[in-house]
Write a protein that binds this DNA or RNA. Structure first.
Lengths: 245, 245
DNA sequence: TACACAATATGTACTTACAACACATTAGAA
DNA sequence: TTCTAATGTGTTGTAAGTACATATTGTGTA
């Protein structure tokens, strides 16, 4: 008896006997990463040309099957590393998608993560494979159910930037308040009042004034800030509003 | 060639050839449900005695392997239906857990859902199987990684009750403000000021005054309320605060 | 029947967050 | 020098959050 079946037998299942046990392993599991970046005042996502005939001409998210010897986070980091050359980036699980017909070649359940990287800081080797950055708001159609996955991850990102200091993973180390506000606007899809925005961001107490100013802008330069170092943990979230709303 | 392998071959995987293809299906997928209920002023969770030798004496969440012909929500509803006899209950996906050693019998990735039911309304047949309700805050240890799953789902529930009208799935159709407040306190683990609570809940505009009063309390009876019918969708969330925080 | 009790119901004052809006300041370019 | 397009800092009115007080109403009991 193959080990897989042996394992299946030990698993508690109410009506296990009705179904061939090996069937339970006839489902593959993958991880898909929505890799967000920010450039030219637009939120972008890293996509790859789909190599499936069914989706020819369409782009898809970066993903891969999970290997038997790696856990979910390991698989996600592996994908990021393989595709971008970067590691230690911000990564967050969002949702599992398990529709019966989401993959044309068979049953694949996927677990979606979103990731945030500073496009300008890390130069990824985009040319030698078919990776490219696409403005999130211009994406009409993707392979598989990846449009839905993208929207779900964008929704989660929009929630998180309001409460947690995650947005800074999309920016260079030093940034001006204008850049930060433009990034918020790109993510949330709204216009924000500059004066109110500054007050709100100051209240959050996330920023460190590094006593430097911009030097490459064609107008009065603004002050530069950093994220406070103690908030820099790539993962590990903590709610920074003290009260129960 | 078995269909499973055939499918594996069609799936894009960077280093697929290094690993025996069938290995990819050597991972089972399950769903685990954290079923919350509210009774005797305590938040409770429905547990079952573990039937695994490794966890003898411990309780575990209700879960089962996903069948090849059902999607994730279908599997979750099936488990709820099989175990409680109820259907159409509130259900929400929370997180996927995929640690390598989380199941002693083999590699099992599980997708956790939480569910909310009104204990008093539906009388589930608890006696003929080993199901029982346990106060959430008294649970010390569970089988597998189910303690972690429980805590994760509780955390999600705590977030959600502040912004979405989900809490009412734990209460009978008609309820008093006192009952509602006690439930919030049980979920959030804090004491709330009665007068401020009433103002806050009125602002949310979730409640319908049904012009009835309690009739079984040993003191002055309070007014009874219902959740506004248009908010009753079991799933499908909508943010009810209009502003960008 | 009257009274104590244990809740409900409602209100006030203070403080803090939010939204709309105005004006002075500063570097660069013409 | 002046114009321009940003930065930096207010002000005001409104809404929401917090702490705290008092009157009201059914129930149970002496």
């Amino acid at each position: 008896m193959p080990p897989a079946m042996e394992k299946a037998l030990q698993l508690k299942t109410a009506e296990l006997e009705k179904i061939s046990h090996i069937d339970y392993f006839n489902i593959a599991i993958s991880v898909d990463c929505v890799i967000f970046g920010y450039d030219e005042k637009e939120l972008k996502v890293l996509l790859i040309k789909s190599d499936l005939e069914e989706f020819s001409g369409l782009y898809s998210l970066l993903g891969d099957l999970i290997r038997p010897d790696e856990d979910l986070e390991t698989a996600s980091y592996r994908i990021l590393k393989e595709r971008t050359g970067m590691d230690d980036m911000y990564l967050e699980q969002v949702h599992a998608f398990g529709g019966l017909d989401r993959h044309p070649s068979g049953r694949v359940i996927t677990i979606a993560y979103y990731s945030l990287i500073d496009i300008k800081h890390q130069k990824l080797q985009l040319s030698h494979n078919e990776l490219s950055w696409h403005p999130v708001h211009e994406i009409k159609k993707l392979a598989f159910d990846h449009k839905l996955i993208l929207e779900t991850c964008l929704g989660r990102l929009q929630q998180q930037v309001l409460d947690y200091p995650v947005i800074f993973n999309l920016l260079p180390e030093k940034f001006s308040l204008r850049e930060l506000q433009e990034l918020y606007q790109a993510i949330l899809g709204v216009e924000l009042d500059r004066r109110n925005f500054r007050k709100k961001i100051v209240i959050k107490d996330w920023l460190l004034d590094i006593k430097e100013i911009e030097n490459d802008v064609p107008h009065r330069p603004g002050k530069l800030y950093k994220l406070k170092p103690e908030l820099k943990k790539k993962n590990g979230k903590k709610k920074f509003s003290a009260t129960v709303r």
